[in-house]
Computed example of a mutant assay.
Amino acid sequence: MPDPLAATPVDLQRRPVLAVTCGEPAGIGPEVSIRAAWQLRTQIKSVLIGDAAFLAMIAADIDPQIRLVALSQQAFLNDGLPDFAVDQIAVIDCQLDAHVQPGVLDARNGRAVLRTLDIAIGGALQGNFDGMVTAPLQKSTINDAGVAFTGHTEYLAEKSVTAQVVMMLATDRTTPPLRVALATTHLALKDVAAAITFDSLSRTIAILHADLKSKFGLAQPRILVTGLNPHAGEGGYLGREEIDIISPVLEAAKANGIAVSGPYPADTLFQQKYLDEADCILAMYHDQGLPVLKYASFGHGINITLGLPFIRTSVDHGTALDLAAAGLGRADHGSMLAAMNTAAQMVRAGRSS
């Protein structure tokens, strides 16, 4: 199995260029973004996207040695990224619309947060960035700003005109590394069963298989799939989705050369004897698979969006407004480090494939 960390000498000489959106300004996103970008500056060329003056103030409080260099949006659009030195962190200035009080949400800044995503998406599609990493944002603030918003995953798909994406969370805190993908994302539980169709589940498995190969360097990914119902439907007594939809999808995927198996009861699948034989678990809905992963890795897991025309990773936690209100130095930037490192590994795996 190819090592996703492996890279040619040329790859090692050129640091992956990652756009880092700093998320909700009243939360811990700006702090963890700055800390991780500075810590990884010799391995990754991070480009922070946020209010340059606000980020500079935070950076100075974290460590006066941190050097942020601001770049206007217009300069970036006209000329792309200049060649910043290793001891400099670039910031594409995306000014906020209201003063920030740590821990206090302000809907006036909701649209500015979305603009940071638009800049990162545009730059990734144009090839200015090798990938993007997102700090947590507050969905309610964006909705309160008058923009219908359900989450990063759906927004990135819409803006990149991607018909279907797959949400996957991962951690290297387990042996082997645990990856959990989702057949559905941010849906009310009452809507999940209707969303699992033969076509949508088939596309999910195809995307998962393709990206595990191309972005993780796995020659033949092994995917284990949960059922939807308790006990995987108990032979139809607890639901027929496994018989009518999931099993036929898996048989069709196998016929296309995909190493997939199931459906397994979700309550017993997450055992070491099964995980040792899996490169990824595909769960049917958000709270079926993610509690297990977050229990194993909270604060050090990451979120990955598969199926996009660019690499995107994110932290596995929220805005932590309470920590932000308490002041700098209380937030753990481990998940941001993991998200940035994983994005860089995916870049290198793609270069070598």
Rank of each mutant, 00 (worst) to 15 (best):
P4G: 11
A6D: 15
T8H: 10
V10R: 14
V10W: 11
V10E: 15
P16N: 00
V17Y: 00
I28F: 02
I28E: 01
V32P: 00
I34M: 03
A37W: 10
L40W: 09
R41H: 11
S46Y: 11
S46K: 13
L48Y: 13
L48A: 10
A59I: 06
D63E: 15
Q73H: 12
Q74S: 13
F76I: 04
L77I: 10
A85K: 14
V91G: 05
D93W: 03
V100C: 12
Q101I: 06
G103E: 03
L105F: 04
A112K: 10
V113R: 05
L114K: 03
I119L: 15
I121G: 09
I121F: 04
G122D: 06
A124N: 10
L125Y: 02
F129E: 03
M132A: 09
T134L: 13
P136T: 13
P136V: 03
P136L: 11
L137V: 00
S140I: 09
S140D: 12
I142F: 14
D144F: 05
A145G: 07
E154K: 07
Y155F: 15
Y155V: 08
Q164C: 05
V165I: 14
M168S: 12
R179S: 00
A181T: 02
A183K: 11
L189A: 06
A194I: 07
A195I: 02
I196K: 05
F198G: 06
T204D: 05
I205E: 06
A206K: 13
I207A: 01
L208R: 03
H209V: 00
A210H: 15
F216A: 08
F216N: 12
G217V: 12
A219G: 13
L224I: 07
L224Y: 09
H231R: 11
H231G: 04
G236C: 14
Y237E: 10
I246K: 02
K254E: 02
N256L: 11
N256Y: 05
N256W: 08
A259C: 14
S261H: 05
G262C: 13
K273T: 13
L275M: 07
L275T: 01
D276R: 11
C280R: 02
H286L: 01
F298C: 02
F298K: 00
N303V: 03
I304G: 01
L308R: 08
L308C: 08
S314L: 11
R330N: 09
A331H: 08
S335N: 04
S335R: 10
N341H: 02
A343M: 10
A344F: 09
Q345T: 09
Q345F: 08
A349C: 10
